[in-house]
């Protein structure tokens, strides 16, 4: 996979889908601009993927929802680095960042860095990050209904990546 660098300026309401690793700078420059950013990534073998997303709020009353999901198999490494920057005088801004990573093998590794830099008040801003394996209860539930472990894993992963 080649690294790409992309700058996206959002003035209205947009849905951005991220499919390739790389550096993304998303700027919300007009008041009341909204962005929904969704990225799903799957790495396997010895791949190393790094996704850097910066959401920069430059205008008041903007909204951004960022959702990054990834699955790492084999010896792959997956890194999510998300950053929300809210400039001064950008009151009324809401921004949410979620980074979730599923590790499907003991040798897969992951890194999640969700940063916040907030220079104005009257904002609602949160981020959440999690790294985990497939919860045993979920696998058990599906397998108890006659689905093989392999199938169950596939179902869970597909669901996880599609949201």
């Amino acid at each position: 996979m080649t690294e790409i660098t992309k700058k996206i300026t959002i003035t209205d309401s947009e849905i951005v889908k991220l499919t390739e690793p790389g550096n993304y700078l998303i700027e919300l420059t007009k008041p009341e601009a909204t962005a929904e950013i969704f990225g799903s990534f799957s790495v396997s073998r010895k791949e190393r993927a790094k996704i850097v997303v910066t959401i920069h709020h430059k205008a008041p009353q903007t909204l951004a929802k960022t959702n990054l999901r990834g699955v790492a198999r084999d010896k792959a490494h997956l890194s999510f680095s998300g950053r929300i920057i809210i400039d001064e005088h950008c009151g009324g801004t809401n921004s949410f960042l979620t980074e979730r990573i599923l590790l499907l093998s003991d040798t897969a590794t992951a890194e999640a860095i969700p940063d916040l830099e907030i220079l104005s008040d009257d904002v609602k801003c949160s981020h959440a990050a999690s790294v985990s394996s497939i919860p045993a209860e979920q696998l058990f539930y599906l397998m108890s209904r006659g689905i093989s472990k392999f199938e169950a894993e596939k179902l869970i992963v597909d669901g996880f990546l599609q949201q």
């Binding site: 590790l103 801003c125 999690s130 985990s132």
Partner: peptide, 13 residues
């Protein structure tokens, strides 16, 4: 390693 549960939550308000 994969047998972990790492969670991070942050809010600013």
């Amino acid at each position: 390693n994969s047998q972990v549960a790492v969670q991070h939550e942050a809010t600013v308000s």
